[in-house]
Design a protein around this nucleic acid. Structure first.
Lengths: 393, 393
DNA sequence: TAGATAAAGTTCGAGGTACGAACAAAACCC
DNA sequence: GGGTTTTGTTCGTACCTCGAACTTTATCTA
């Protein structure tokens, strides 16, 4: 139960009950579609009459559409309802240090369009390039209602101002990306940290996530980012800084980290760490990337395998911290490293079992082969606005 | 924004709007009392008429009472409203390994009655002893409406079943304490972990907590427990296990911990750790307790001071982890150690500043001299049911 | 001292919402 | 072809907030 924040609350009005129940209807349709009004009644506990009125309204607002007529053993046949997947076209933009992916997705999270461009060197160029591509995609599908744009960034975004702060790997110093993108596209824009995006993606689209309300995503790349969903909602912290577990010190005598300290988790468990382990073991392999090491390991290269297993051990070390401290239902590992999960998964889980006595409640899994978890998460971010519980009181 | 959990949701009914707005009224009165209906209108944004009806209802339900008449420069004088502090008598029971405190508090968290008893050796004796004392206190104040009993336990409590699990320091193996207490007292009973209770206490009664919605309590005693409030609500995890940061490993070569691993945070930063540091430095002081060490330090004993400062350093080490990973508004340290906070506070904050680059958003403070943070938290736990945001959708 | 002004608080009709019973529609069974 | 069953709609009731009009109780002004 949440305490009411008297600095930021919302009273209930005449439309509040309808708002709440509409959202429940939308979620039930999303989960069970195709589904009849009668089944919605059974699932929701509302009256038939109420369900009837609400669905009529949602149909007139284009959120739902009627579909085929179903079969029953006896009695009148039900009319199935579906989500109108063209009701909300959402643009997802995933900014990474070298490449930027862009996609147009529908309500159901299906990608209708995808492209990839080299990340523009300045925010100016980024804004104009994105604007152009968004406009051209919108022209191609004029029948679609466009809901907004979500941007995944390798950095932290201030929650209230939506300005972004702390994006060391990107080198941008743009303060008000949100407003500028909104001006040039006419759509609403949301910025989000990439680890949070991964968490949202798994939370809204993960097949295992039914009944889960505490989920942590560990995004492993050059560094490690953590996105947390606790009590069914993203934990951003007061200024969007929450989740930097990658910079928790696990060995104070360890190698230096970019953050200024020594022995941070990501120094031991990121892709860069695996590259370092490999290079230390094979000084001739100076030019190898993490991709190369994954391939070498697949081909049976002993040193590559050891480097990855070492990385996996430390991944487990940090995940043990998350399990002990937060005991979520699920921890999802996202990143290239999951391609070798057959080999590395057991190393991770064994380490966690050994180091955390609360491990029994938490499942540790690798993100599925879903394309682009970051993009998916961005879709979820915008989806939340219509499908999430309204913030009343 | 929270995702709606389709396995556990609540539709909005006719009374939902009233429920929400009543709770907002109650909170506004709690914060601003004495306050007039007109001011409630201004603070809430509701209509005068609506406020009038709601307050009338709350008065008839004994939550509010009318008080003195205020003064204005011109016009009709406002009638002040107050919380009716006798509306909800709450029993708080704080179970610790050796002693159990018990208190009766009113709505405003003021203690009306307190006693302390040696912790009964078995749950059977505990239940009967508590029942007797509760009954006798209730008899003494027949005009009061009794809301329930909250119990703070040195262990973790399963959220859904309210059975308690993992209470190693207590040695009890009672499975259904809640039901048994309810049967003998006729009141509703809630069990909660003591660190969570501390967090609730600070969150609902802390003077600094206005506008704060992310708060972490670090309860330092023989071990270390962590209670987390994120996004304005307690994080319990799927089965109440969240918060065992005390058993996160900060040095894998450290001393053995009761949990079976080596080098857990609490091995370095709990009261027991300080005792160990002192004994290592002064082998003659084998029989000294943590209390003794606090006193010796006050008297200027160099070894005692060093032991405490060493403890404080490691406290900072673990708090840095919480700051880096969760970046809350506030971290509150609770426990005997705060009595030496003038000396130890700077050690803690310096360590955190050095080890966490996100420290700027987080204030680290010692729990005030408020009596019995655990009891206070238990009051808050029961208070939440009436003052918290209702869980709709 | 009487009327104007101002603020607090109440009353009441309008519009929105869920509920629940009655009703209509559309299938199957015998 | 009538009875039964299930789906879906209609409509009156009760509850809620809104907002305007009204009442109450002050002070200010002439």
């Amino acid at each position: 139960m949440r305490k009411i924040d008297l600095n930021n609350f919302q009273v209930a009005t005449n439309g509040t009950a309808r708002d709440i129940n509409s959202r429940i209807m939308l979620n039930l349709v999303r989960k069970h579609q195709p589904i009849s009004r009668a089944d919605l009644t059974r699932h929701s506990g509302l009256q038939r009459s109420t369900v009837s009125v609400i669905t009529e309204q949602l149909i007139s607002e284009q959120w739902l559409r009627e579909g085929a007529v179903g079969a029953t053993l006896r009695g009148r046949r039900p009319t199935f309802l579906h989500l109108n997947e063209n009701r909300a076209g959402i643009f997802g933009i995933n900014v990474r240090p070298f490449f930027t992916n862009m996609a147009l997705a529908n309500l159901e999270g299906r990608f209708l369009e995808q492209e990839s461009i080299p990340t523009p060197t300045s925010p100016d160029k980024f804004v104009s390039e994105i604007a152009e591509r968004v406009r051209s995609m919108m022209k191609q599908r004029p029948q679609m209602a466009y809901e907004g744009i979500g941007v995944s960034l390798p950095g932290r975004v201030d929650l209230s101002s939506q300005k972004f702060i702390f994006a060391p790997n990107l080198g941008w110093h743009e303060e008000d990306l949100k407003k500028r993108l909104e001006q040039v596209t006419g759509l609403s824009v949301d910025l989000e940290n990439e680890a949070n995006a991964c968490a949202l993606s798994e939370f809204w689209f993960g097949s295992y996530s039914d009944g889960v309300s505490n989920l942590i995503a560990v995004a492993v790349s050059e560094g490690i980012g953590v996105g947390m969903i606790l009590n069914g909602q993203l934990v951003r912290g007061p200024s969007g800084l929450a989740g930097e577990f990658g910079h928790v010190i696990i060995n104070e005598n360890g190698p230096k980290c970019g953050c200024g300290n020594r022995g941070c988790w990501e120094v031991f468990a990121s892709n860069s760490a695996a590259v370092r382990y490999y290079q230390d073991a094979r000084p001739s392999g100076r030019d190898k990337t993490f991709e190369d090491i994954l391939q070498l390991a697949e081909q049976g290269d002993r040193k590559a395998i050891e480097a990855l297993e070492n990385m996996a051990h430390y991944l487990g070390r940090g995940i043990a911290m998350l399990v002990t401290g937060l005991a979520p239902d699920v921890i999802v590992v996202v990143g290239e490293v999951t391609r070798a999960w057959d080999r590395l998964g057991p190393v991770v889980t064994d380490t966690v079992k050994q180091l955390s006595f609360t491990h029994t409640t938490t499942r540790i899994i690798a993100s599925g082969p879903a394309p682009q978890p970051r993009l998916r998460g961005i879709i979820a971010l915008v989806l939340q606005k219509h499908f999430g519980a309204p913030m009343i009181a």
